[in-house]
Design a protein around this nucleic acid. Sequence first.
RNA 1: GCGCCUGUAGCUCAGGGGAUAGAGCGUUGGGUUGCGGACCCAAAGGCCGCAGGUUCGAUUCCUGCCAGGCGUACCA
Length: 679
Amino acid sequence: MADLAAAGELEGLSRKEAKRLAADRVRERVVSLAEEVAAATAAGGHGFARVEAANGYVNVSFDANAMAARLIGEVLGQGAVYGTGAPLAEQVMIEHSQPNTHKAFHVGHLRNSCLGVSLSRILRAAGYAVRDANYIGDIGMHVVKCLWCYERFHKGQEPAAAEAKGRWLGEVYAESDARLNFRKDVVEFLLLLSTEDPTFVAAIDRMLKYLWRGSSQSEEMGQDVAYLLGRVAGAQPIKDEMLRDPGVMLKFWPIVGDQLRDEVANPKPYVPQDGVPEPTTTPEERLATWQRLAEPMDAWWPEVPAWREEVKETFARWERQDPAFVALWTETREWSLADFRRIFDELGAEFDVWFFESEVEDEGRRIVQDLLAKGIAEVSDGLPVVKIDEKLGLAEPTYRTLPILRSDGSTLYATKDLALTKRKFDEYGVDRAIWVVDVRQSLYFQQVFKTLELYGFEQAAQAHHLGYEMVRLPEGVISSRKGNVPVYDDIRDAVVARAQEIVEEKNAGLAPAAKAEVAWQVAIGSLKYAMLARDNNKVVTFDLDEALSFDGHAAPYIQYAHARACRILEHAGLEAEGLAAAAGGLDFGGELAAEELGLLQAVSALPEAVQQAAAEYRPLVIANYVFDLARRFNDFYHACPVLPSAEPTRTARLALTAATAQALRNGLGLLGIAAPAAM
RNA sequence: GCGCCUGUAGCUCAGGGGAUAGAGCGUUGGGUUGCGGACCCAAAGGCCGCAGGUUCGAUUCCUGCCAGGCGUACCA
């Protein structure tokens, strides 16, 4: 660059442009140097198969045929083991899936399970001694809420079929949530209107006048009207308990509805204003939300405070282990568990250990006492906490404070996780514990790990939280209250049905049983690939239409490449063993095609991909690998005829095809995806 | 405030100190007297968020900004 400056060529250029110019000049020089080096090397007779200069690089080639023969022999000889590493002594436990009983198994759990299953297989392949652990949330407020709702509104209504009960229970939970949060939802919606619907705010005065005139005009009513006016006009949150007259919202709601309908009928163009954020909703969406809340308004609004009291009583029944309640819990818990076992079976998730929250409460309380006795924990604001930063002598807020027991003595998630992790270390001799859990809990896990370190567990330093981002929908965040949670069963049904159509269309000649199996493998494979072919720390937007499309960068593309490879081998009538035996003497017949070289390179990369995926805890590495391998096989397949070519090329290409199929199978296996031989 | 994550083609995403930054979807135009067309080829589309720094070389590493998301003591 200095030379260019001296020559005055940088005159009037920005710094960035100057750098670009300099880089271009350097490249020109490098290209010519590379050519000289390549020519000199080739002339020198160094034994390379080929030496060439390309874009400033000197590429040397070895005897591809000999290397190919060795690689293919290795792959075919090792078979299903190809790609795996030497056994390692380290004991690893991966905790994943963690669904809650009495709740639905949804797409979020699906991402977790797919990640967990794949990571487990990858770590096993890399040589670790791995145990898969599940941790079922079978107690807690969600159970209490669900069972309250069941006893109060649905007792005896459960479906007769055993396999339908788990799902039904999840719906009861969703309803309990909707009921108990009904007032909250209503006032939050009013806040939303007052912050992003200027037309609504402008009309609030008139609406409340209308409410006032149409009412009994009590003192309470007057206060409520004034309260609502002040809050909406000032875009302040409304607290439902501040309303004196329990009937005021019931009378107000239809008036709100009239206003929102009017806004839909007479839309006003959106005018951006300073300091006013853009609306997140359209008038139609707001009316729809109003409508959803309007339906149960009269029946639910007045009841919510009483319901919340009932839930508290139900919680007390759990706390004192009321026998009737425990019996109900035991029975309903099994409904969910049966459902989970079925789902894990479908997903190919196998667990060596099943932990349950209900089993670690007591031990958790003992640990809390111990931590208090040792001075690691202290009672602050009435509850036991670990002030981690203080204990570590950190001035900046880093790990903050971890509460480890509620002030009423009931257990927290942390209470149980401390006990559970201790068990992993003490009973299972785990050297490295991995948690596959939502990324939003990462601070929490750092706190638990540090607390256990303070408690004396050195293994806690090796503990790893594999966080992953949430699954969203094209229309926004998943919310159980909005009722837009895509339940696993529904998604699976839709994807399997679509896969069946496609199999029927593409391969009508298949036997019916084979069709069903292929459709299943393609469907589940696509679902899994969609979950794995995206980095953990990226939000997955789950689009059902996209999941139903089996084109392009998706599992069927890879599965199809495998099926085609199998088909060629089938035509040839050669077994892998026979090809393996011939591998030593393989001869591609002269110079290898670029597609053959590319494919060989991809086949050979599996062991490295496994190691990388294991080191980084990233199934994505394998997802990418397997797609690249399939793409290269397609390139090869289109460029290099296998069966029609003459010997010895034919056998060599067949062996390469067999090795590719093996690598594809092994790679897909690491993702937990099936590799059908025909589809 | 503090901490973590994200920003790459119209969209969804890979990649990564070194060659002309890659896929899929979508758009346009092609390919079957070949081992199954769930495939392939071509075209078009990029200040790799912005600005500095380190380096022979940065889209990649470091720092600072900007934008979005998430977390931050009795939810799980």
